[in-house]
């Protein structure tokens, strides 16, 4: 995959806290090509958002990021403030979960978009303003000119998220990170927002990373998926394979907990995610895994191995029957 615009290699993120070092992300690889949408799935605390916030330098000072992350060939990890500023909002833009708190309540929508345009382009305020109205139109906000003079609280949740998207695509970025963009929205609005993101991915050939805990979203829009658990990638597969033949017990657990047609009872994954202050040796999922053996506890982090067309971080993947229980 030489043509990937976003390339993550062995990205690790840890936080220094009062109680010790929390290893939030423990070595994540990822490749996303232009015009491709990759889903990153996992429950809260699995490190899926932190990975991307970390490489963009948006985490608080207590965080340490190591590994390598390049966008368009430019290294971000360890890059100075200048390098990061040049990438943020220009080559790599981000959409956040809660558009109400992610937009500054005291500035007009238009001004907030103008700010990102002028941060990277030497244009006048009025030129940037015209572009801002254009962008609002692209993301499907009616009467963009009037709306650009309004404040975030005058917008509905879905409209606010459209504004966030308009802001993110203002400088035609190579990579768009969508961090749970639909979680805070109504179901009907969710579909519209996903459509907007998909349109951008298609029309502007943007590489999109869709971070979500919602497998339904993945099924709708993503091309490929990485499943994360306890700061590690446990499965990498195409969307089709993920749903048809999951390659990791955790994925199976996730799929079984989804409501399906004709199903009377949901199957939760029993137990809770591990304590990332002292991550367990070997496979982090083994405490909740029905297939776990002594071998799973061996003090080596399981690497991704091929399983069919997918990659799985389960050492027993070729011995066990991973059919989804319906």
């Amino acid at each position: 995959m030489t043509d990937s615009v976003l390339k993550l290699r062995d990205v690790k993120v840890s936080f220094n806290t009062e109680n010790g070092v929390v290893q939030a992300v423990r070595g994540v690889d990822l490749d996303v090509a232009a015009g491709e949408m990759v889903g990153v799935v996992g429950e809260s605390g699995s490190g899926k958002s932190v990975t991307f916030l970390g490489v963009m330098g948006l985490l608080p000072g207590s965080a340490t990021v190591t590994g390598s992350a390049t966008v368009g060939g430019v290294e971000m990890v360890g890059g100075g403030k200048k390098v990061l500023r040049g990438i943020r909002g220009k080559k790599m833009a981000m959409i956040f979960q809660d558009p109400l708190s992610a937009l500054n309540p005291v500035h007009k929508i238009g001004d907030q978009i103008i700010e990102i345009i002028r941060a990277h382009n030497d244009v006048s305020n009025s030129e940037a303003s015209t572009r801002a109205v254009e962008l609002l139109d692209i993301v499907g906000i009616p009467q963009p000119k009037e709306r650009s003079r309004q404040y975030p609280h005058e917008f509905s949740g879905g409209m606010r998220q459209r504004v966030m998207i308009a802001m993110a695509i203002a400088n035609d970025p190579d990579v768009l990170i969508a961090d749970e963009p639909t979680t805070a929205l109504d179901v009907t609005v969710q579909a519209q927002i996903l459509e907007v993101i998909q349109r951008i991915q298609r029309d502007m050939r943007t590489a999109v990373v869709m971070i979500t805990h919602d497998l339904g979203v993945i099924a709708r829009v993503a091309d490929r998926v990485q499943v994360m658990y306890a700061g590690r990638v446990v499965e990498r597969a195409s969307v089709m394979n993920l749903f048809d033949e999951p390659s990791h017990p955790y994925t199976v657990g996730l799929l079984s907990s989804l409501p399906r047609h004709g199903q009377t009872r949901l199957e939760p994954i029993i137990g809770s995610p591990p304590n990332m202050l002292q991550p367990p040796s070997g496979c982090a999922f083994r405490a909740r895994c029905t297939f776990a053996t002594d071998a799973c506890a061996v003090d080596v982090l399981p690497e991704l191995v091929p399983h069919g067309e997918s990659m799985s971080a389960c050492i027993r993947v070729n011995e066990i029957d991973l059919a989804v229980k319906v």
Partner: peptide, 17 residues
């Protein structure tokens, strides 16, 4: 710790701004 500060930083504007 507001989200909008994170958004502002994600825009690539200077820390001073």
């Amino acid at each position: 710790s507001s989200d909008y500060l994170r958004t502002a930083r994600a825009k690539g504007i200077s820390e001073f701004r």
